[in-house]
Simulated scan of single mutants.
Amino acid sequence: MGWNYLWLELGILHHIYDNRRGEGMGWYSSATTIAMALGPVMGIWVTDSYSYNTLCLFAILLSIAALIFASSVKTPYQNKTKQEIRKLNLNSGLFFLVLAASLALSRPLSGK
């Protein structure tokens, strides 16, 4: 699940204009926070009021709606230079290095 979230976030980040990246990531973070707050509430409400089959059907319908909305997004092609691609690779490498180090340090402390 975490990998899916990472690739989704990188895909969204790629489609945001450079001069509006802060605003775009703010909207994305707000939407993610709202979804994490409302998702469990809606799931419990659907399973209490109906059934797990209805919950699965509801999730499938929401996924189809999300695919339709996502396919309607049109963004112009942004040609990235080799220097920008190298910078992105360096930043992602640094990200995964810090992630691995933090996991290596936190796992023994948490007991997992």
Results as ranks from 00 to 15, higher is better:
Gly2Cys: 05
Trp3Asp: 13
Trp7Cys: 02
Leu8Arg: 14
Leu8Ile: 12
Leu8Asp: 08
Glu9Ile: 05
Glu9Leu: 07
Leu10Ser: 10
Ile12Gln: 03
His14Arg: 15
Ile16His: 04
Tyr17Cys: 05
Tyr17Trp: 10
Tyr17Gly: 13
Tyr17Glu: 09
Asp18Val: 14
Asp18Thr: 11
Asp18Ala: 15
Gly24Pro: 02
Gly24Cys: 03
Gly26Ile: 07
Tyr28Gly: 00
Ala31Glu: 07
Ile34Glu: 05
Ala37Ser: 08
Ala37Pro: 00
Leu38Trp: 01
Gly39Ala: 11
Gly39His: 04
Pro40Trp: 10
Val41Glu: 04
Met42Arg: 10
Met42Pro: 01
Gly43His: 01
Gly43Ile: 02
Ile44Gln: 11
Val46Ile: 05
Thr47Arg: 07
Thr47Phe: 07
Asp48Val: 05
Ser49Phe: 03
Ser49Trp: 10
Ser49His: 11
Ser49Ile: 05
Ser51Tyr: 12
Ser51Gly: 09
Tyr52Ser: 06
Thr54Leu: 13
Thr54Ala: 14
Leu55Tyr: 06
Leu57Gly: 13
Phe58Ile: 03
Phe58His: 01
Ile60Tyr: 06
Ile60Gln: 05
Leu62Met: 13
Leu62Ile: 06
Ile64Asn: 11
Ala66Trp: 01
Phe69Leu: 05
Ala70Ile: 05
Ala70Met: 11
Ala70Gly: 04
Ser71Tyr: 05
Lys74Val: 01
Thr75Ser: 02
Pro76Phe: 02
Lys80Ser: 08
Lys82Gln: 08
Glu84Tyr: 03
Glu84Cys: 03
Glu84Lys: 02
Arg86Cys: 06
Lys87Asp: 04
Leu88Thr: 09
Asn89Cys: 09
Leu90Gly: 00
Leu90Val: 02
Asn91Arg: 11
Ser92Val: 15
Ser92Asn: 15
Ser92Thr: 15
Phe95Tyr: 12
Phe95Ser: 04
Phe96Asn: 10
Phe96His: 08
Leu97Thr: 07
Ala100Cys: 09
Ala100Gln: 00
Ser102Glu: 00
Ser102Trp: 01
Ala104Arg: 13
Ala104Asp: 08
Ser106Phe: 14
Ser106Pro: 07
Leu109His: 02
Leu109Met: 09
